[in-house]
């Protein structure tokens, strides 16, 4: 814990850095570059959303950031530490909750699993941490159930609790709310605000929903092109606390949303043509409304 607090310095050093990240699948003739030269910083206590058109290699990027897949070139840093494998100070929430929770374990055991074998943590400590994490996502009464006995939204809450109990500095979320219905989705978005305030964790969230990114983020990173690169990083200066109704109905929200939508669409490849518009200057996308 002490070490973690120390690295959360106020000197303005980024918590997470992607430096000239690129990824190419295959080699020779079959080589297909998915990510091209992606760089950005995420600072302490920030929520940053990554948006981009579908098929933009968002999941590839996330897997590189999470240390689940080596990048072809470039590097990822957490603080000053270079990421070579899944870092201890990072936790990931995956999109497909029904596959990312272990169906043979209770909710509680799922949350405790990553804490097992951690030095200096007794079984009672584990239990306590799991209880706290479950309580903070509103599932304190479902600890003894199995994941498949819960609704989709509740399952994703369990996955979030598992990440929180891990006490990461950075929470990586891969389209976490893409597989739940609209109502549950806005509940979970608000939950994200709540846990952010409570745990002070830095959040990097990948999504294809532009409203969601504006609602949640302090900054939005817009990706586009093939291979994918960072088009623009849009600061979101909406006041906190945010609210589903009032925030989303402000003109500022609509303006930001429109601007990001424009950025995403402009760079959407019009056809499968490999001739890539240099820096996206050919902007007449097919469905630019």
């Amino acid at each position: 814990m002490t070490e973690i607090t120390a690295t959360r310095s106020k000197t303005g050093l980024p918590t997470l850095t992607a430096q000239a990240l690129s990824k190419t699948y295959g080699s020779g003739q079959n080589a297909r570059q998915v990510l091209g030269d992606i760089s950005f910083d995420v600072y302490d206590h920030e929520t940053v959303c990554i948006v981009g058109p579908s098929g933009a290699g968002k999941t590839t990027l996330l897997r590189c950031l999470a240390g689940l897949m080596p990048s072809t070139s470039g590097s990822v840093y957490i603080g000053t530490e270079k990421v070579v494998g899944p870092p201890r100070r990072m936790a990931v929430v995956f999109q497909d909750y029904s596959r990312s929770l272990m169906p043979w374990m209770t909710v509680e055991a799922n949350v405790e699993l990553p804490l097992r074998g951690r030095p200096g943590l007794t079984a009672a400590d584990r239990r306590h941490r799991a209880q706290t994490a479950l309580a903070s996502v509103g599932l304190e009464n479902s600890a003894k159930l199995h994941p498949w006995q819960l609704s989709g939204g509740m399952q994703q809450r369990v996955a979030i609790a598992r990440a929180l109990a891990y006490e990461p500095d950075v929470l990586l979320m891969d389209e976490p709310f893409a597989s739940v219905d609209a109502q549950t989705r806005s509940d979970l978005e608000d939950l994200t605000h709540t846990i952010k305030a409570k745990y002070g964790v830095t959040i990097l969230l990948v999504t294809h929903d532009i409203s969601e990114s504006v609602y949640l983020a302090d900054r939005v990173i817009v990706l586009s092109g093939t291979p994918t690169s960072v088009t623009e990083i849009v600061p979101i200066d909406l006041p906190s606390p945010r609210d589903q109704i009032t925030t989303k109905s402000t003109p500022e929200f609509a303006e930001l949303r429109g601007r990001i939508l424009g950025l995403v669409r402009r760079h959407q490849p019009a056809t499968t043509s490999t001739a890539e518009p240099a820096n996206g200057s050919l902007m007449k996308g097919p469905d630019l409304g």
Partner: peptide
């Protein structure tokens, strides 16, 4: 499931 393996790796399960 690969996702299960990803979970195990990203949470550094022993």
């Amino acid at each position: 499931d690969v996702l299960i393996k990803d979970v195990s790796r990203s949470y550094s399960i022993k």
